[in-house]
């Protein structure tokens, strides 16, 4: 398996170890590239006519908690041992170290992967007075990342839930805790779809997942959320802090066995303009009897022992 894929697959293995242990058949096969998967099969529909998003969305071997993988999450897709490109801008990206199974100094591999993750072009535009702080956050992420010590990833950093249960008046989203690029605890969201309106923002106490309201626009499921605390970042890497006035609009579109997700982040306090993630695609677990396994509890014991600022 190519090294970069192995890195991703390994992270997935750490996260999905429970799934592998519990699997009664072949586990999802790790992919050797991380291009978004192509859809296959028909899209099921609920009795009310809307697409049915119900399912265990952890079907990718290189999948972290229903997220296709964290390299593609940050806008870089690796297609072969020698080819990678920026999904957002389309530019070719140099892949170093080479994406092969050859022996490598892990120190080099880790640093190269860190740089590769940061080569994507799709980045939020902060007001100039906050540029230094965002850079500081990223540089000092071992200490500054508010989620890395087993706290919730929050919204939209949690990205695509690993389980969605669709019911007539609400959706249930489950996000297992991660042990990959960041260490987070399990998170769930119960999202009403009964037509209710948001509580006025100033009446809400900020929380990690905010107040989320769901609705359909055609075949796309929209989740509109506000009422967050300021204790999360809104992408996997980059130190992207936000205020309590963040407003997030997520879009979920099911096509057969794939679920495409984007999130648009509005933050009038910190951002010059709304920012939309590069689309991420999750794959349905192909097993007809797929179950979401127990998520391992999270206990962070390492950060007190780190002696340099290196991180992912």
């Amino acid at each position: 398996m190519p090294v970069s894929s192995r890195i991703i697959a390994t992270a997935a293995v750490i996260c999905f170890a429970g799934a592998l242990l519990l699997a009664q058949g072949p586990a999802p096969r790790p992919r050797t590239v991380n291009a978004p998967p192509k859809p296959a099969g028909a899209t099921p529909h609920a009795p009310d006519g809307h697409p049915d998003l119900t399912g265990v969305w952890n079907g990718l071997g290189d999948n972290l908690n229903g997220v296709p993988n964290q390299l593609a999450n940050n806008g870089i897709v690796i297609e072969s041992e020698t080819a990678a490109h920026d999904l957002h801008g389309g530019q070719v990206v140099t892949v170093f170290p080479r994406n092969t199974n050859g022996a490598q100094n892990n120190e080099v591999a880790e640093r190269a992967a860190s740089l590769l993750r940061r080569s994507g072009s799709n980045r939020p535009i902060y007001k100039p007075e906050y540029w230094d702080m965002v850079k500081y956050n990223d540089h000092n992420a071992n200490e500054e990342d508010p989620s890395n010590n087993c706290m919730p990833a929050g919204v939209p950093r949690g990205a695509i839930p690993s389980y969605i249960g669709q019911f007539p008046t609400y959706m249930m989203f489950v996000y297992p805790g991660q042990g990959g690029l960041i260490a987070t605890q399990t998170m769930y969201r119960m999202i009403p779809t009964d037509g209710r309106k948001h509580t006025p923002l100033q009446e809400l106490d900020g929380t990690y997942t905010g107040e989320s309201i769901g609705r359909w626009e055609g075949d796309t499921f929209i989740v509109d959320s506000w009422g967050f605390n300021a204790n999360t970042w809104f992408d996997q890497i980059g130190g992207y802090m936000h205020s309590e006035n963040m407003h997030v609009i997520e879009r979920f579109h099911r096509d057969g066995n794939t679920l495409t997700w984007t999130a648009t982040v509005e933050d009038p306090d910190y951002l010059l303009e709304p920012w939309t993630t590069t689309p991420r695609v999750a794959l349905l677990n192909p097993r007809p009897d797929a179950m979401l396994p127990e998520s391992q509890p999270c206990s962070e014991r390492d950060l007190a022992h780190t002696v340099t600022k290196e991180h992912h």
Binding site: I14, A103, N106, L181, H311
Partner: peptide, 21 residues
């Protein structure tokens, strides 16, 4: 020789930030 640690390569912190490889 070069030490390779494939199984922890995507830990939540860099290996070399904590351990002497």
């Amino acid at each position: 020789s070069l030490v390779t640690l494939p199984d922890l390569a995507s830990a939540h912190h860099s290996i070399q930030a904590q351990f002497d490889i």
